[in-house]
């Protein structure tokens, strides 16, 4: 059952159409990713879902509520983690959770939340004395303190070190396992690939693709690449004659063979039959990065 329904959403900033007819549904318990280059309309889209921005067209329903009309009611069940939102430097971790918890009818067990986010020893630490990663985790805790059914997390791990990012991902999976539906806005491919059940790729205010991570990469290309260093010389035709092989390139001592399904098995058996050992063998598959570039024509990291 869809817990979030967005139909033909439109948002204009003056004469600029930031969101241009976006539609999607998110199922209960799903982690739904919104991926796209900067300025694609990702944040504007989720802000319309959250009720932080009024839309100029289309309809949005979250748990049957209209974010614009039933804003206060919706926010009782919606947890929002904002990009770039800080707290006063002198407020302590425990105080912030206590304060934000008092805004909700149903509040999470703050002690457990603090422990789960690894802030147990920091209860009395002022916000200004926390590291970037700890501030980010507190911000996630504040988004979860009202026991939300739906959480919208915008650029969750930007500015975190690799360890903190992986810890945050684990946390998000735990949150989902407790039954919370999650919308994740990101421009990190690895994050989307690791966490999301489905991904909407957004570009210039439109959804250009909506699929599972595997579906997205398959959609771009079924191609595989096998790269190796042969132990002995062999003529190109040896491999090119195989139906699985489309192309063969040589670069220095290395051979790169490109082709379709079962490429590796076909290449490996021919080489074995000819007593050629393939050293440094690597199979390269199309990544979500490649899919993203193919779909949007832009590099994901900027």
């Amino acid at each position: 059952m869809a817990i979030i329904e967005v139909q033909d959403l439109v948002k204009d900033y003056g004469s600029f159409r930031a969101v241009d007819g976006i539609s999607f549904e998110v199922g209960e318990g799903e982690i739904f990713g919104i991926l796209g280059p900067n300025g694609a309309g990702k944040t504007t889209t989720v802000e319309c879902v959250e009720g932080l921005r009024s839309r100029d067209g289309g309809s949005v329903k979250v748990m049957g509520l209209d974010p614009e009309r039933d804003g206060a009611e919706l926010k009782q069940v919606l947890g929002i983690q904002l990009q770039e939102s800080r707290l006063p430097d002198r407020i302590r971790v425990g105080e912030a959770l206590d304060l934000y918890g008092s805004f909700y009818r149903q509040r999470a067990d703050t002690d457990r939340l603090i422990e789960k986010l690894g802030l147990g020893g920091k209860r009395k630490t002022p916000y200004g004395k926390l590291s970037g990663g700890q501030q980010q985790r507190l911000s996630i805790a504040l988004a979860l303190v009202g026991n939300p059914r739906v959480a919208v997390l915008d650029e969750l791990t930007t500015g975190l070190d690799p360890q903190a990012r992986r810890d945050t991902w684990d946390l998000i999976e735990q949150v989902r396992n407790s039954g919370v539906t999650i919308i994740l806005v990101t421009h990190f491919m690895d994050e989307a690939e690791r966490l999301c059940d489905r991904i909407a790729v957004v570009d210039s205010g439109k959804i250009v693709a909506l699929d599972t991570p595997a579906g997205l990469t398959a959609r771009v290309s079924e191609e595989q690449r096998v790269r190796f260093r042969p132990s002995a010389e062999f003529p190109d035709s040896l491999l090119l004659d195989l139906p699985e092989v489309a192309r063969l390139e040589r670069s220095g001592p290395h051979v790169v063979v490109t082709g379709g399904e079962h490429l590796l098995q076909a290449v490996a058996s021919v080489l074995a039959r000819n007593q050629i050992v393939a050293a440094d063998l690597r199979v390269e598959q199309v990544s979500l990065d490649d899919a993203f570039v193919a779909l949007t024509g832009k590099s994901p990291e900027n």
Binding site: E73, K75, L78, S85, R86, P88, F103, L142
Partner: peptide, 18 residues
């Protein structure tokens, strides 16, 4: 002004409290 600049007021908008 600092609360506005740091996004404290914005964060309040994400909660049921105005």
């Amino acid at each position: 002004a600092a609360y506005r600049e740091r996004g404290v007021l914005r964060r309040m908008r994400t909660t049921p409290i105005h």
